[in-house]
Design a protein around this nucleic acid. Structure first.
Lengths: 211, 211
DNA sequence: CCTCTAATGTGGACACTGACAACATTTTAA
DNA sequence: TTAAAATGTTGTCAGTGTCCACATTAGAGG
């Protein structure tokens, strides 16, 4: 028989994260509250402080989880890709799709002061997500769909484009009603960008390696 | 002689907005508080409720002011433009420059639930800012730098790109240390996008030179 | 010039929050 | 076995958004 309230929870940290994750997409980033999370985990309002220094650290952990899921979402979407260019396009599509499906979570991932980067978990998870994009870019380079050289500038440009689409769509600034419409727009935009930075015969202004 | 405390302030609404605007870029969007704003305006904690239904409405007004300033910033930057393409590039540069200089204010403008659009002031100001971009796009079309047709898709794509750059840079996700570096990156990215969209309709038939 | 009402500002209250301190219980390692 | 470290709890505090009742003033209609 198990008592309803063992004094020590077992692994409260995970339970708190879980509670926060379940709460986040209904309560919103501002609506998430340490005390509510504690309540949902069935502990006192101060228990979380044994596992997270403060609210910021909890939110950083939530954000890190978001990056893990984003990574998975992009990989899943890109799995069906044929060409390298297709893979890049689908990766972007996965990005925007995730952002629109989990808007609040997405917001917690990005709408924080840059100090979040001091949380190792956060930085690591964010980096892993970025690597998905980088790999897609590199594949395009290998396939000759993009000029050789440092892939980072391409990656950051592509990231900026899809991130902007996601953010503006979430903010209701784009004239699309459904997620499907946004995704169609995303496809066209990334397509346009790709053709723009497509390898050119002899452009004097080509992108070059910079130290 | 003027008494220090006339019971009626005169135009408290503007004073409150002013106080909020002065506060916003040091306190941050989350740090802005109705009570603090009231304090700064020298009135009781409840006075703001005679002029704003709730905190959301105050923030919507602050955001609207932000769009006015953004509009001015883009126009100022683009004033020095030579060609139409240059004008578009400078408009984007003005956008990112504004976002980086007034990060917190920028955040209030965009990191709100879509319900902000129900505040007429907000929507109107946001639309005016968007028109600056639309006009630059149209000028490019008139100059043959962009294909004719509905300018909106081009505008939303360009907006997404610069918005993404601004957001990611503010979040500390881009590997640039100074604002100047971000602006250089912005120039290159918009350049790439423009060239991409340019070639879209037809490379063999793209006849836009006409003496 | 006088009211009388609407506009505007005030003080008090309530429920809620993040955070701290002091205390209680349990685990674990010496 | 026992002392120390981990983990949870209750109590408390200042600060917040918002509601309510009340005070003061301005301005319109007589």
């Amino acid at each position: 028989m198990k008592q309803p309230h063992p004094y020590h929870h077992g692994n409260l940290k995970e339970a708190l994260l879980e509670a926060a994750l379940q709460h986040i997409d209904t309560a919103g980033p501002g609506g998430i509250t340490l005390r509510e999370v504690a309540r949902r985990a069935g502990v006192s309002h101060n228990a979380p402080y044994r596992h997270f220094a403060d609210k910021d650290e909890l939110l950083a952990a939530v954000a890190a989880q978001g990056f893990e899921r984003l990574t998975a979402a992009m990989n899943a979407e890109a799995a069906a890709a044929g060409t390298a260019a297709d893979r890049l396009r689908l990766t972007g599509r996965g990005y925007v799709g995730f952002a629109l499906e989990y808007r609040k979570h997405f917001s917690v991932m990005f709408d924080r002061p840059p100090s979040v980067h001091s949380y190792a978990e956060y930085s690591a998870a964010a980096k892993r997500a970025f690597e998905v994009l980088m790999d897609a870019i590199k594949a395009c380079q290998d396939a000759g769909e993009l000029p050789a050289g440092d892939p980072a500038p391409f990656a950051f440009t592509a990231w900026s484009l899809v991130h902007g689409i996601a953010k503006l769509a979430i903010a209701g600034q784009l004239p699309f009603r459904t997620t499907a419409d946004v995704l169609v727009f995303t496809d066209r935009a990334t397509q346009g960008l790709l053709e723009g930075i497509l390898k050119k015969p002899a452009s004097p202004r080509g992108r070059r390696l910079k130290s």
